[in-house]
Write a protein that binds this DNA or RNA. Structure first.
Lengths: 161, 161
DNA sequence: GGCAGGTGATTGCATAAGCAACTATATAGA
DNA sequence: TCTATATAGTTGCTTATGCAATCACCTGCC
């Protein structure tokens, strides 16, 4: 299989140039942007990115509260990781836990006024960051295309809201 | 800046549906695929993904050796993180450190025969995983497009090799 | 009703990673 | 030449995270 230049997917034992750039680019973009967005949020609002995500999902949920397990799934964290994260947010007064009346095992995380205020302050920073570092580079139809790409890779995993 | 129009980026205070799917899809795809690829490599070869990346970069480098700082940059790890990672790999006999004759401060990480063997075994698994979970979903010209997208977001960050 | 197995949340423990401080060496400037 | 500053790598410490075990509760089946 003598690939003269590199027209085809290259040998099966190695990624071709094109594949490499498509895949590694994803890794680099994710790593770089996550780090930058986290640093920005932390610098301007003293709020780690994961904490921001919790506040955001909770704020957007029905009644400004979410079950622990749903939250864990939304922000892609293990349940134990989420327990600890909510511990920290509760300690800082940004969320509080309430019991679930229909299932005594469950807890809700809900926003406190301080949490809502923190989120409102941080939201603009984060959204501006996402736009400036990422979305800005793509036109509407390109964004749509990207979304369809992700849908191919993970069918049905699109965020509901 | 082909498309600077931005017809309706939705309100400035919130991400629109399209933006949300383009951005969050990236996060989800990265998280899901990283986890899956790491688990696969760990299960079949008892090798974490970051260790695999070290072996891969070192193997592809001139003389099968790389400076610590270049390696850290390649696999997107802090220098202290890399020190510890190389500690583990050295303990497991997969790489060894050698001094740099032209700069007494520096060290090279280089492959041991065991490291080379481990990499050869793991490479097929990982490449198959990347293709099966990600690249498979895109045609050649779509891969090229993705690569160009990443290049827009992080100009000049494309992998050299 | 009562038991078996499943699910939600938490905890103990282990690990990977970053930051800041430190050591040793290199390089540039007076 | 000597000094100041920058760089390569390591170490101490802290933190976030996951897995496995655990506890409490729910649900379905007899």
């Amino acid at each position: 299989m003598a690939t003269t230049i590199q027209p085809i997917p290259s040998e099966p034992g190695e990624l071709g140039e094109r594949e490499l750039r498509a895949w590694r680019g994803l890794l680099r973009v994710h790593a770089t942007l996550s780090k930058a967005l986290d640093a920005e949020l932390e610098a301007e609002h003293d709020l780690p990115l994961t904490s921001y995500e919790v506040l955001m999902y909770v704020a957007d949920a029905e009644g400004e509260r979410m079950r622990m397990c749903d939250l864990a799934e939304s922000i892609l964290l293990s349940r134990s990781g989420l327990t600890r994260l909510i511990d920290r947010l509760e300690r800082d007064g940004l969320v509080c836990r309430t019991t679930c009346s229909s299932d005594a095992r469950g807890s809700f995380a809900c926003l406190t006024p301080a949490g809502r205020a923190k989120l409102n302050a941080a939201r603009a920073t984060h959204l501006a960051g996402v736009r400036r570092l990422f979305l800005q580079h793509f036109g509407p139809e390109e964004q749509e295309l990207l979304a369809s790409f992700w849908e191919r890779v993970l069918p049905g995993a699109a965020p509901k809201r």
